[in-house]
Simulated assay, not measured.
Amino acid sequence: MKLNALLKTLGFLALAATPVVAGTAPAPKNPIAPAPANDDLGINATLGYDSSYVWRGVTYGSNWVSAGLNGDLLLVGGAGEDGAGSTSLLWDVSWGFLAGDNDSFTPAFSGAPFPFSTLGNDSNSFQRLQLGAAFAHDFGPAVVSLGYRYFYNMGDLADQKGYNTSSIFTPFGTGNGYHGMKDTQEVYLGISTAVGPIDLAASANYDLSNDGWYFDLTASTTVAITDAISFVPSFNVGYANNYTWQFTPDSVNTFSGGAGGLFGSGVGESGGDDVSGWAAANVRLAFPIKLNSRATLTPYVAVNMPLGALSNVAQSSQSNPFLGAGGVNPPSTGFETTWYAGAALSIRF
């Protein structure tokens, strides 16, 4: 009897342990949530403000407001877990403008004696639209990109029509051999890699419209402060070869003191019409703040330091006798050391 009771008890326990549906395993005590679907479109939207617009070592003006979109499209997947061997199409579009039209190149006519004080305002507007696309291939140790950019320059700085309707005698619309900036096409070759904690990026940029080169090298590193805040110091140095920063040769000749350009006597040209040599060094301290999984706010402070070849490209009353005689001192802030700051909000879609 005891044996029969024991067998019945064991049978009851076995039945209780059997799953309700045959062939299925018991549900785990702590189920794992399914991975969310990847709905990332690979697009970044950016809105930014810079107290000065510094581009390749030249300070174009103050209070630059910009907006842009950029993204990447995977064309060929990499065989390695780290993505090595992949090829992507990178693209970007951006637009910016000088709020207040406070450029760095216009002489201060208002402070000069008559008749110079009647020659117009002391500022010029500037807007720039930039479009770009590149193929990038990940070789493992480095990523190499080959790309194209188009720059559409607008505003008084880019006026090439002769006379400026907003001011009879502004430097970028006088019809006096000084024709502002060209819309520019550019091709470039870039390479990026990492050496320990240091990220390195270099590029060679050829200006098809003005037949000049600009080379640059950037070194940066990222230091995590908290889970949401990082510190990113970076250093950039640029080298120019027959480069004009998209200004026409007449414009650059004027900046470098040529007599045949803006306000010149038209007798000879003492300045050059392009720049070759070390252009500028730039130090930036950025503090990316991750607001959520998709949005990042990046404030920064920076200093731009034109080097020998670029720092010598500056207007002066001594090199422009016509202006000097009227007590007009053209600004050289576009080619001098500039401290500036700003912030950018980036949202990933």
Rank of each mutant, 00 (worst) to 15 (best):
2 K>R: 15
7 L>Q: 14
9 T>C: 11
9 T>I: 13
10 L>F: 05
23 G>M: 05
24 T>K: 07
24 T>E: 08
26 P>H: 11
28 P>W: 10
31 P>M: 04
34 P>S: 10
36 P>E: 11
36 P>V: 08
37 A>H: 07
44 N>C: 08
45 A>I: 14
46 T>Y: 05
54 V>W: 00
54 V>N: 08
55 W>V: 05
59 T>K: 15
60 Y>Q: 12
61 G>W: 00
67 A>F: 14
68 G>I: 03
79 A>G: 09
80 G>C: 07
81 E>H: 12
81 E>S: 11
82 D>W: 09
87 T>K: 07
88 S>D: 14
89 L>I: 06
92 D>S: 15
101 D>T: 10
108 A>Y: 08
118 T>N: 12
121 N>M: 12
128 R>N: 15
130 Q>L: 13
132 G>F: 05
133 A>H: 01
138 D>L: 04
138 D>I: 03
139 F>G: 11
147 G>M: 02
149 R>N: 13
150 Y>P: 07
151 F>L: 10
152 Y>K: 13
160 Q>S: 15
162 G>S: 06
166 S>H: 11
168 I>F: 10
181 M>C: 13
184 T>C: 10
189 L>P: 00
192 S>P: 01
193 T>I: 02
195 V>P: 00
198 I>L: 11
203 S>L: 07
204 A>I: 06
205 N>T: 08
206 Y>K: 05
208 L>W: 06
216 D>K: 04
216 D>V: 02
222 T>E: 09
224 A>W: 05
226 T>M: 04
226 T>Q: 04
229 I>A: 06
234 S>Q: 05
238 G>F: 00
239 Y>T: 02
246 Q>C: 11
248 T>A: 09
255 F>D: 00
263 F>E: 04
268 G>E: 02
268 G>M: 06
269 E>M: 10
271 G>R: 01
271 G>Y: 01
272 G>Y: 01
277 G>R: 04
278 W>L: 11
283 V>L: 14
284 R>L: 11
284 R>F: 00
287 F>I: 05
288 P>E: 04
294 R>P: 00
298 T>P: 03
302 A>M: 05
302 A>Q: 09
307 L>P: 06
307 L>M: 14
308 G>W: 00
311 S>N: 14
312 N>Y: 07
317 S>D: 13
326 G>Q: 01
330 P>K: 00
331 P>Q: 09
338 T>P: 06
339 W>P: 11
343 A>L: 01
343 A>Q: 01
344 A>E: 12
